[in-house]
Design a protein around this nucleic acid. Structure first.
Length: 216
DNA sequence: GCCCAGGTGGGTA
DNA sequence: TACCCACATGGG
C-alpha cells in the first residue's frame, strides 16, 4: 500500500517529530483551536501569553472575561472568533464532564467525536486533533497538507471529502494512536517543505520518487 | 505590498 | 450540495 511506503520514506528522511508540541492535554486542546488557519509560531506567542497570565488551565481560562481572553490570544489571529470558540469548549467541558478533560477523554472515540463537532468552532480537523493528540484516541487527522500531498500522488480524487481521505488512512494504516500521530506530523513537515508541489520545489523531497498523477 | 499559514461557520443559490 | 466570504496576526 502506497501510504505505508510514504510513511517509511518520510520517517527515514525527517525522523520522529515529537508531536503535539504541548506539555499537557489542556495545552494541546487549546493549541488545536488556536492553530486553525494560523502559523504555529503565532500560536506559540498566544500560549506564552496565556501561561504568563496563569490562564492555561480550565479554571484559569474560565475565570477570564472573553475580552481579556481575546487580548491574550491576539497574536494567533482571529482572536475574537477564537476567544468565543475557547469559551464554547470550556462551557461544554464543564456542563458535560465536570470540567475534567480526563473524564471527557474516557468517552468512546466516536461518541466524543460527535460531541466535539457539536461545539461552536470545532470542525473535523480540530476534533480529530483533540482526540488523537490530546486524548491518544486512534483517529487520523486530515489537514490541508495531507489533502494536497495525496492529491498530487493521485491517491484521492480532487473532490474527496475529509471523511473519504480519513478512511484511506484508517483502511491502510494500523489503528494505533502513536502511528497516526507520527504519520500526520510527518505529512505536515513534508507539506511545509513543499513536497506537494512539482519540481523544482519538490526536488529532493522523500516522496519525489513515488508516482505523481498531478504535476501541479 | 503581497501571499500564506497544521479551519470553521454563516450566508446564498 | 456547492461556492463565497469573514475572521486577523505575523513571517517570508
Amino acid at each position: 500500500m502506497a501510504l505505508r511506503k510514504f510513511y517509511r520514506a518520510l520517517f527515514k528522511q525527517f525522523g520522529p517529530q515529537h508531536w503535539w508540541p504541548g506539555e499537557t492535554p489542556f495545552e494541546i486542546v487549546i493549541g488545536a483551536i488556536l492553530t486553525q488557519n494560523t502559523a504555529w509560531t503565532n500560536v506559540e506567542k498566544a500560549i506564552h501569553n496565556l501561561k504568563r497570565a496563569g490562564a492555561l488551565s480550565v479554571e484559569g481560562m474560565e475565570a477570564l472575561p472573553e475580552k481579556r481572553l481575546a487580548a491574550l490570544i491576539r497574536p494567533s489571529g482571529y482572536y475574537n472568533q477564537k476567544a468565543k470558540k475557547l469559551k464554547a469548549f470550556l462551557r461544554r467541558l464543564r456542563e458535560h464532564h465536570g470540567g475534567s478533560l480526563d473524564r471527557m477523554f474516557r468517552l468512546p472515540t466516536e461518541q466524543l467525536r460527535q460531541e466535539l463537532l457539536e461545539i461552536h468552532g470545532i470542525g473535523e480537523e480540530t476534533a480529530d486533533s483533540i482526540l488523537l493528540y490530546g486524548g491518544a484516541h486512534p483517529i487520523f487527522v486530515v489537514d490541508a497538507y495531507t489533502r494536497r500531498i495525496l492529491l498530487r500522488h493521485g491517491l484521492v480524487a480532487p473532490g474527496a471529502s475529509y471523511h473519504d481521505i480519513q478512511q484511506i488512512f484508517h483502511a491502510s494504516v494500523v489503528s494505533n494512536a502513536p502511528v497516526y500521530n507520527e504519520f500526520h506530523a510527518l505529512l505536515v513537515e513534508a507539506g511545509k517543505r513543499h513536497c506537494w508541489k512539482a519540481r523544482p520545489q519538490c526536488a529532493g523531497c522523500p516522496l519525489e520518487r513515488f508516482p505523481h498523477s498531478v504535476e501541479a
